[in-house]
Structures are given as structure tokens and as C-alpha cells.
Amino acid sequence: MAGKRKTNPAGSSNELRGDVLRVLGVLKVATADQIQRIASPHLSYRHTDKPTESERKTARTAAHCGALSDLRKHGQAENGGRTKQAETLRNLTPRGLEAAAEEMRRPMTEMGGTARGAGSSGGSHAMAVNETIIAMLRPKPDLKLLTAEPAEAQAAARAVVDASQCAFSSVLR
């Protein structure tokens, strides 16, 4: 375990770093919140015991922020500016783009470029595109991962799953 901590001081797992690489490999620039909502939607319903939305957001994005920190240490990710809401924008370096290509099992020729400079103006267009993608994906939470969470968190996640199943069944009619 000591070797892992020296290599990844924020303690992120390979799986979490892989999540971040896959999301940024496609979106190119995103906030930790957007990465979390795509890669781990079940976390959106946790931490209901925190008194403010800001504290809930900080708690649910902590693991992905740690993965981003470790990727930064390895020269694969960087902070690329701030949104107008003062959230840090994250993007991959050329080295990170190579790692994302490997993670996604795609040739580098299909990966596109890095998003350097996207955050210099707050990334408003990129953030709008990301939110549209998240809305289209509508990632459903894995209810099995919420069994230890409070009843209100489980109910909120269940409502999202039920709503998406209703929407899907109405399309089939």
C-alpha cells in the first residue's frame, strides 16, 4: 500500500483515474462535478446529511478530485481555467490524451486534440455542450451502491430510475 500512496498521493484507484481519462478523452474539458455526474451518477444522491449544496458537492466530487490530482502529478491532466461560477476546468495534456486513448482502446488518430485554452474565457460553450451531453445520457444511478445511504437519498435515486424507465417505455409505444 505504501508504494501506491507514493505513486498516487491523493490515493485514487486505477478505476477512478480511468473514469476521468475516459470522460476527458471525450469531453476534452469538464469540471469535477461534470466528471462525477457522468462516471459515477450514484454519488449525486449521497451526502444528504451535509447542510449546504456546496458541502454536498464537495463531498461527492472528492474522489474524482483526488484522481484529477494524481493525474496532474503524472503530467496527464491540468487545470485549464475557471468557469463563470468559479469552478475549476480540467483538461488532458497530450500525455493524458495518449493515456485516454489507451484506456478507451482507440487509436490516437481518433482522439482529437487537447482543449488547451478552452477555459481562458470561462468555457461557457464547452460547459453548455457538456450539460447537454449529460442530459442526453441521463446516467442512471446504480441503486445497489446506495444501500447504506439515508432513505431520502435512496428515494431520490429511485425516482430518477423510475422516471427514466417511464420515459423509455413511452418511447416504445
Rank of each mutant, 00 (worst) to 15 (best):
A67S: 05
R90T: 02
L24W: 07
G117A: 03
T61S: 10
H64Y: 09
K73I: 06
G18R: 13
L137E: 04
D33S: 14
G117D: 06
S169F: 12
L146P: 07
T48F: 14
R22C: 12
R90E: 11
I133M: 07
A126W: 14
G25F: 07
S40A: 10
K57S: 12
S12F: 09
A153Y: 03
H125N: 08
M1A: 11
L27H: 09
K144I: 00
L68D: 00
D142W: 07
R37F: 06
I133R: 09
T109W: 05
V29E: 08
P51Q: 11
A2T: 14
D162M: 04
T7G: 00
E149L: 03
R158G: 00
M136V: 02
S170F: 06
E15K: 08
R90S: 13
N14W: 07
S44W: 02
I134F: 10
D49Y: 11
I35G: 06
A10F: 02
K50F: 04
N79F: 07
E15I: 12
R72E: 13
R72H: 05
D19S: 13
M108A: 09
G75Q: 02
T61Q: 09
A32L: 07
K28C: 03
S12P: 10
D19K: 05
L172I: 01
V20M: 01
P9K: 07
N91Q: 10
T147W: 07
E87F: 13
E131Y: 01
Y45M: 06
A157P: 14
E152C: 10
D19W: 09
K140E: 14
A67Y: 05
N91E: 10
A128K: 14
R158M: 10
N14S: 11
A159R: 14
A159G: 04
A118Q: 05
T83P: 08
T88I: 15
A126N: 10
L21A: 06
K28W: 05
H125F: 12
E55P: 01
A59W: 04
K73Y: 02
R106M: 15
A157V: 13
G3E: 14
